[in-house]
């Protein structure tokens, strides 16, 4: 297991290198530079800005310089926010996204899991159809519809919760964005859990347990639950990575200082370092959570052997 983990982590390095290289090449190939503006800048001043950010060097040297800095954990200066480093922007934004993401995933797992298993146990009943209809609606309603509706209801009309802002992650500010973000995941998890629970309940070892006369509650908790988690884990790995790096829409609607929004504005403003920095972070997180998911398989399903 330990050797497996170490090998996977080492294997991540070339993957990240490919990601960095692709991001670097694609960004520099895109037309327009970070300091092109609606207004023309005097050539001498343009030159001095480019020299400051090493944009006057040949591309290969910029690339090597970037890799060298990256190896030291320095993601470079942001171009669009002059005087601010990419590390700083990520350090400021990641905790926000992580807090909302973890809250949303916890909500989604608790509610989605319970609803899904219940629906499976009461298969074919009104409860099953009702919750699954709700789940389909949840999956298909985009966040940019849900989030403004939540604000309209709970902030503008009822004045129960704030309409946005981030006050160090206070629960009242956290709730609406977390719910908006959690809704599609809750729905997806509910459907996933329902499907896999039905499948597991039909398998031979559950029949054996029933034949032994065990009560249903015990069968579900002791025998059925663990194997039903397999599809959930493969879904959660990338999902958590995605949640941690932020939802652009939720951040935008609630005015939260996460990093998801930067990703878009940085790309549009040709803020090379910020885009690559966030890409590397995103890539790293996906690799990490996929690895965690694989490790979880081994724990859930004794037939899986990691070598």
């Amino acid at each position: 297991m330990l050797r497996y983990t170490a090998r996977r982590l080492l294997g991540a390095i070339p993957t990240l290198l490919v990601i960095v290289t692709l991001a670097f090449v694609l960004l520099h190939a895109a037309p327009g530079g970070p300091f092109d503006a609606g207004k023309r800048i005097l050539p001498e001043i343009q030159k001095s800005i480019e020299a400051k950010y090493h944009l006057d060097e040949p591309l290969w040297r910029q690339y090597l310089r970037y890799l060298g800095d990256l190896a030291r954990g320095d993601l470079g200066p942001s171009f669009q926010y002059r005087g601010t480093s990419v590390n700083e922007i990520i350090a400021q934004g990641l905790p926000v996204d992580a807090t909302i993401g973890v809250t949303a995933i916890a909500l989604a797992l608790a509610i989605g899991g319970a609803v899904g298993v219940n629906a499976a146990l009461r298969r074919g009943t009104r409860w099953d159809y009702g919750t699954m209809a709700f789940a389909v609606a949840g999956i298909s309603t985009p966040v940019f519809v849900v989030a403004p509706l939540l604000i309209l209801t709970f902030a503008v009309t009822l004045h129960w919760l704030p309409a946005g802002d981030w006050v160090g992650g206070s629960p009242s500010h956290l709730l609406l964005p977390a719910i908006a973000l959690a809704l599609p995941y809750t729905a997806y998890i509910a459907r996933l859990m329902r499907g896999s629970t039905i499948e597991v309940l039909n398998s031979a070892f559950i029949r054996t347990a029933r034949a032994k006369g065990l009560p249903l509650r015990l069968i579900v908790w002791r025998h059925a639950l663990r194997p039903t988690l397999t599809p959930l884990v493969s879904f959660l790995g990338p999902a958590i990575a995605g949640l941690l790096t932020g939802s652009i829409v939720v951040e935008s609607v609630f005015g939260l200082p996460g990093i998801g929004r930067h990703f878009i504005t940085a790309a549009l403003n040709r803020d090379y370092t910020l885009v690559i920095g966030i890409t590397v972070l995103y890539g790293g997180l996906i690799i990490l959570f996929n690895l965690l998911a694989d490790l979880c398989y081994a724990w859930i399903d004794p037939r899986v052997r990691l070598r």
Binding site: P148, L152, V156, P162, A163, G164, D165, V253, G255, T265
Partner: peptide
Amino acid sequence: YYILADRSTQVSRFMAGD
């Protein structure tokens, strides 16, 4: 100064009294 790139968000924050 709240930085709200989404102008609709500015409206909802105004309506909410923030």
